[in-house]
Nucleic acid binder design. Structure first.
Length: 278
DNA sequence: TTAAATTCCTGTAAGC
DNA sequence: TGCTTACAGGAATTTA
């Protein structure tokens, strides 16, 4: 599943391929993938634009487009669970589940492929997309220097929901999904089912530290390929080899040897160690 | 306002 | 072998 490190890797790989290119065509084959505006307008507004920058916000890839306005016009891509966003030569064989093709002025094609179709494409300025409720009001970036342990504590201490539910909440902190939520709780030694308002400043500080270290490590390893995630070149990341709890329910804890517990939290499978996490 | 439940979607794997 | 069923999960939406 693409979370912050996977999306960061993809955006960094696509950047040199896309910046400076102009969109010359767009073919939306599965219209419900385009959530804003209507697919015909999406195509009409996109064609002719130059891509000035490619950035990431949370789990979203942002393509900043040339337009005569003060605020950026953005092509926004969210990969959902199985989305793939690649730039390929036009003669590359077409895969199954190809839902949209954006043609560039060098002939290359940006292809959106998504087996489960949980992903989405959006076009608009950030304020426009937020106002239209197509983009959530995302919380802080966990790797931003301004995102301190104190700031995380401020976002958690008045909430009764389980810690993990809040780590997954994109309005609390942007970019964390099921893999990195479970892994950061394990590394911090904190049970994911603890009500957030029961956590001490010290515990929140450990979570903050574990999360930032883990995300940096995962970016350095080009993300986790646990399902269908592949980078811009179709290659797997390496971080999945370093995961300590995700996907290991029932197997021995790598720290103490006791079988790892599996519960459901915030609708997600959650794995943790009852001895190492308190 | 917050929290929990439901929905979308299809490939994969388990069970019979 | 072939069928049915459960499961995986991000986030929008609905319900409490």
């Amino acid at each position: 599943m693409p979370e912050l490190p996977e999306v960061e890797t993809l955006a960094a790989d696509l950047r040199p391929q896309l910046v400076g290119r102009t969109v010359t065509g767009c073919d939306v084959r599965f219209p419900t993938i385009v959530r804003h505006p209507a697919p015909e307008r999406f195509t009409a507004e996109l064609v002719g634009r130059r891509i000035d920058a490619v950035t990431r916000r949370g789990k979203y890839i942002l393509h900043h487009l040339d337009c005569g306005r003060s605020e950026d016009l953005l092509l926004v891509v969210h990969l959902g669970m199985t989305g793939q966003w690649r730039c390929v030569k036009p003669d590359a064989p077409e895969p199954d589940h190809l839902h949209a093709v954006v043609v560039l002025d060098d002939g290359c094609q940006l292809r959106y492929r998504d087996v489960r179709r949980f992903g989405r494409l959006l076009l608009g300025s950030e304020p426009e997309l937020v106002a239209a409720r197509k983009l959530p009001r995302l919380g802080p970036e966990p790797l931003d220097p301004d995102f301190t342990a104190a700031r995380l504590y401020g976002r958690l201490h008045a909430r009764r929901a389980p810690l993990k539910a809040l780590l997954l909440d994109q309005m609390v902190v942007a970019g964390v999904g099921n893999i990195y939520a479970d892994e950061s709780c394990f590394r911090a030694g904190v049970r994911p089912d603890r009500p957030a308002n029961s956590l001490s400043r010290r515990a929140v500080s450990r979570i903050h530290s574990a999360l930032s270290t883990l995300l940096r490590e995962a970016i350095a390893n080009r993300g986790s390929s646990v399902d269908s995630y592949r980078d811009a070149w179709g290659e797997m990341g390496r971080e999945q080899e370093l995961l300590q709890v995700y996907g290991r329910g029932g197997e021995p804890c790598l720290r103490c040897g006791r079988p790892l517990s599996v519960v459901r939290l915030a609708g997600r499978t959650t794995v943790f160690c009852r001895r190492c996490q308190r």
